[in-house]
Simulated assay, not measured.
Amino acid sequence: MTAMPRYVPSSTRIQGARWQRSSYSNGMNNCVETATLDSGPSAGLRAVRDSKNTAGPALLFSPGPWESFVNCLR
Score class of each variant (00 low, 15 high):
residue 16 G to Y: 06
residue 14 I to L: 14
residue 34 T to M: 09
residue 36 T to G: 03
residue 23 S to C: 03
residue 47 A to G: 08
residue 35 A to Q: 10
residue 29 N to W: 10
residue 5 P to I: 07
residue 23 S to V: 13
residue 47 A to E: 01
residue 58 A to G: 05
residue 39 S to L: 00
residue 25 S to C: 15
residue 64 G to F: 12
residue 13 R to T: 15
residue 54 T to E: 12
residue 5 P to M: 07
residue 39 S to M: 03
residue 43 A to E: 02
residue 40 G to F: 04
residue 51 S to G: 10
residue 57 P to W: 00
residue 54 T to I: 08
residue 3 A to Q: 10
residue 67 E to K: 10
residue 67 E to V: 15
residue 19 W to C: 01
residue 71 N to C: 11
residue 46 R to E: 12
residue 25 S to A: 13
residue 38 D to M: 11
residue 42 S to K: 02
residue 48 V to K: 02
residue 22 S to W: 09
residue 53 N to G: 04
residue 52 K to A: 13
residue 6 R to S: 10
residue 11 S to C: 08
residue 24 Y to M: 03
residue 74 R to S: 13
residue 54 T to V: 11
residue 48 V to S: 02
residue 74 R to G: 13
residue 68 S to E: 14
residue 60 L to E: 00
residue 54 T to C: 06
residue 73 L to T: 15
residue 33 E to S: 11
residue 2 T to P: 07
residue 34 T to V: 13
residue 4 M to R: 15
residue 56 G to S: 04
residue 8 V to A: 08
residue 66 W to H: 06
residue 31 C to Q: 01
residue 41 P to L: 10
residue 43 A to L: 08
residue 40 G to H: 02
residue 73 L to Q: 14
residue 42 S to G: 01
residue 68 S to M: 12
residue 72 C to M: 06
residue 74 R to L: 13
residue 25 S to Y: 05
residue 28 M to K: 00
residue 21 R to L: 13
residue 18 R to A: 13
residue 9 P to D: 10
residue 41 P to E: 13
residue 59 L to S: 09
residue 48 V to P: 02
residue 71 N to G: 06
residue 54 T to L: 04
residue 9 P to I: 15
residue 4 M to H: 12
residue 15 Q to T: 15
residue 43 A to N: 00
residue 45 L to P: 01
residue 7 Y to N: 10
residue 62 S to R: 01
residue 67 E to L: 11
residue 38 D to C: 06
residue 57 P to S: 09
residue 56 G to C: 05
residue 65 P to F: 02
residue 21 R to S: 14
residue 31 C to S: 14
residue 17 A to N: 01
residue 13 R to P: 04
residue 49 R to Q: 06
residue 30 N to R: 04
residue 70 V to I: 14
residue 14 I to D: 06
residue 35 A to S: 08
residue 20 Q to A: 13
residue 72 C to R: 01
residue 31 C to W: 01
residue 4 M to G: 09
residue 20 Q to R: 09
residue 24 Y to H: 14
residue 6 R to N: 05
residue 69 F to Y: 12
residue 73 L to G: 10
residue 58 A to N: 02
residue 11 S to P: 06
residue 46 R to V: 15
residue 45 L to Y: 05
residue 17 A to C: 05
residue 62 S to A: 15
residue 67 E to S: 14
residue 2 T to A: 12
residue 56 G to L: 02
residue 27 G to M: 08
residue 27 G to S: 12
residue 52 K to P: 09
residue 9 P to L: 14
residue 42 S to L: 05
residue 8 V to G: 03
residue 14 I to E: 05
residue 61 F to W: 10
residue 33 E to W: 03
